[in-house]
Design a protein around this nucleic acid. Sequence first.
RNA 1: GCCGACUUAGCUCAAUUGGCAGAGCAACUGAUUUGUAAUCAGUAGGUUGUAGGUUCAAGUCCUAUAGUCGGCACCA
Length: 578
Amino acid sequence: MINIKEHERLNVMNHSCAHLMAHAVKNLYPQAMFWVGPVITDGFYYDIDLGGDAIREEDLPKIEAEMKKLSKDGKRIVRVEVSKSEALDMFKDDKYKIDLISQMNEDDTVISVYKQGDWMDLCRGPHVESLKELKNFKLLKVSGAYWKGDSENEMLQRIYGVCFESKEELDEHLRLIEEAKKRDHKKLGKELELFMISEYGPGFPFWLPNGMMLRHLLENFWWKEHVKEGYQFIQTPIMLSQELWQISGHWENYRENMYTSTLDERTFAIKPMNCPGGLLVYKNSLHSYKDLPLRVGELGLVHRHEASGALNGLFRVRNFTQDDAHIFMTEEQIESEVVRLINFIDRIYKVFGLTYSIELSTRPEKKYIGDIEVWNRSEAALEKACHSAGKECKINPGDGAFYGPKLDFHIRDSLGRVWQCGTIQLDMNLPERFDLTYIAPDGSKKRPIMLHRVIYGSVERFIGILIEHYGGAFPMWLAPVQAVIVPVNPDLHSEAAHALAKRLEDLDIRIKVDDRNEKLGYRIREAQITKIPVQLVLGDGEMANNSINIRRYGQQNSETLPVDEFVAKLLLEISEKR
RNA sequence: GCCGACUUAGCUCAAUUGGCAGAGCAACUGAUUUGUAAUCAGUAGGUUGUAGGUUCAAGUCCUAUAGUCGGCACCA
């Protein structure tokens, strides 16, 4: 665990390293002008305008070398405080710095400038004392970045880098990056034949048999767990008429990203969300307060025309399956229902060995609908539910959707990377737009509270995360092929191998027999490469004793067990989802 | 969509200043009968993403276009 002091020190170093990099860039590209160079979760970046010139990835070593030179030279970093007019004069050749300074207050702001040798930068600080302290750094990538983060603006060049106290820490960081590359789900998806994406359908993944099995297992697990939680299930159409999307408001807000089709002079849109369909189902019958909370699940396939540059393997696709559910309830039921949901989500994530943190996003300053009192009560209910469930929850003020507050679940994978998957969102908009009601005890019609929630988020994306989390070596219950039987001599032991396979198949174990005319080592190797959890070797010895030799994925050694004992152990491992 | 890089056999990659498109693995055929990460030999496999252009000659240079990747913007 890194403590706060070390963390601050690391941030200061990275910030100073951003300055060091900018200094080096200025030496190599005198025309360069600089916007900002902040510290980020992993390292730092600096946004630079090279006036038409371009830094390429291959130029990074050159910049690093210049940085090393400056570091060795070891200039001290000195803080200077100046007035606004002095600052404007000092940076008169850099329009970006002028822009920053112009936004500062005339009188009461102290403007600080950090100087190192002949180079200086407008900066709040703090910084390390000398460039000498910056030794263990690496520039990682270059990219474009819009000025002020606004796509209407020109693009600057952004250089990313990291800096550490010790070479060991830097090496460890670079090792983690390499490890992440090895686990890339796009690479493993190809190697393990899980999915493919054709150039005929950018962003539309195809599921290959192995991936389809994985998907089926996840959906099946999802279904069973939801039955336990009192959910009902529906399926709503992929395509519904334009008028429906006008009622829901999606037409107005997301039309650009919706796939549409007009035939017989009527326009239909492929659903980008499941909710409107779900609401039509709710409205299909009358509901009593006695039916609430009503939990309705749908594994719904949605399509969204994402920007071409946003597509990324299974992480960002144009069609995906939300493990959606809508819960309709009274305001009094919010807290207990959310507690129940948090515990539910907790149970699911634990199965995958994923830890997580929860964030509560509250009412936006300006753009929101509904009654402020209801917002306050809902936010309080969500927060209280977190605490009742024994969970911490970080508050993101003003980060909620315009239609309601939400709890987001940020999961942490085996490489320490964070992904937002689950979310619980209250919706004060759609029940109003669709005029949803239930009959209260006094016979009057009341408006239910609606809650959207997903656990996987998108099944496709969740599988992408799981592939990387497990590095493609899935636990027994998820492995597309759970075991492969390798008869030592295909001619002599193949029959027994198939008999054993039949027995295991009857127990719903996903089994393969590799009785190809290849050496044992060759077949074992292939099973290891395809990350099949266990290899079962069957030869004369095993046939004589009704035993089986078991070697697990990633292990060198093997053990021999009576077949009955092995089967019992295997079934236990599967049922316990280890 | 924007900035940049990339695209050669099913996969992973070669191919000198523009000068005969090649290897390993996989596939197929045959031999081999296998005890825990690659048995041997042979065969086949390509309009070098696509469409144009420059050139005596283009995988290589130029233009356009599609897709992928790394970021940016976006992510109901």
